[in-house]
């Protein structure tokens, strides 16, 4: 049973903007519970691909299944089963921490009791209980990112898409963020993450590298390093990116 194990299946995904092909015939799958790294230089097409998988953007062509549902016909079922954290601010800056949780929990259909439990669970985990009624605007970026991740996880999605979740945060917070990612993965959530940081690529179970709208390499970090005879993922990435520019 393919679709049981593969939580994301992408066949020949293409997206054009006018004459520009942002994403060109992508083929890949993501295993259930996997941490899947989605790498590429700026403008390589990562964000376009991730937005298509989240149902924010229509593909020009291709067959896509997320969480066992067809992205075209079962869009709302897909959306009920995924979480998304974009590189832009996804929380309402003029609302408090608890109000943001309540709003998103509410529109995912959680009961008020569930929402209350989730708020105390996540705030306890992040040790931000005292910040429950703080306005988001007043918090440092790292905390906002961790909160945004928690909000995106609130409805227990099967897959969570993280689009450069650690952009601009300090190394300590990045480390903590990855601990949260591991924890979510070990609880069975599939993680689909894009990043600029090559050290973070090493934390992923499998990594795909996009160059100019195409996937040029896809494997575990170890095998990729062996294949490209590099010491680190950074070496792999540079070889691929250079070869095409």
């Amino acid at each position: 049973m393919h679709s049981e194990e593969h939580i994301i299946r992408v066949e020949n995904l293409t997206r054009k903007f006018g004459s520009f092909t942002a994403v060109d015939k992508l083929n890949f799958y993501v295993n259930k519970g996997e941490i899947f790294g989605f790498l590429g230089a700026n403008g390589a097409g990562k964000t376009t691909a991730i937005r298509i998988l989240c149902g924010l953007l229509l593909p020009t062509s291709g067959k896509i299944e997320v969480a066992g549902f067809d992205i075209y016909r079962q869009t709302n079922k897909v959306k009920q089963n995924i979480g998304y954290m974009s590189q832009k601010f996804s929380l309402y800056e003029d609302m408090t921490v608890a109000e943001n949780f309540r709003f998103y929990g509410g529109i995912y259909g959680l009961s008020r009791k569930d929402i209350r439990e989730k708020i105390s669970y996540y705030l306890h985990k992040l040790r931000l209980e005292k910040k429950k009624n703080a306005i988001i605007k007043s918090l440092p970026l790292g905390w906002k990112q961790k909160l945004a991740f928690s909000v995106a996880m609130m409805h227990d999605p099967k897959v969570i898409f993280l689009d450069e979740p650690t952009g601009g945060v300090d190394p300590v917070t990045r480390r903590q963020f990855w601990e949260m990612i591991y924890e979510a993965a070990s609880a069975g959530t599939t993680i689909f993450v894009t990043t600029h940081y090559m050290d973070e690529a090493e934390y992923c179970q499998r990594v795909s590298i996009m160059v100019d709208g195409r996937i040029e390499a896809l494997d575990t970090p170890e095998r990729l390093k062996k294949q490209f005879e590099a010491d680190s993922m950074e070496g792999v990435f540079l070889q691929l990116a250079r070869g095409h520019s």
Binding site: S86, S90, I107, Y108
Partner: peptide
């Protein structure tokens, strides 16, 4: 950009 976050919900 918050509308994106709303649009990924059902």
């Amino acid at each position: 950009g918050t509308i994106e976050q709303v649009n990924v919900t059902p």
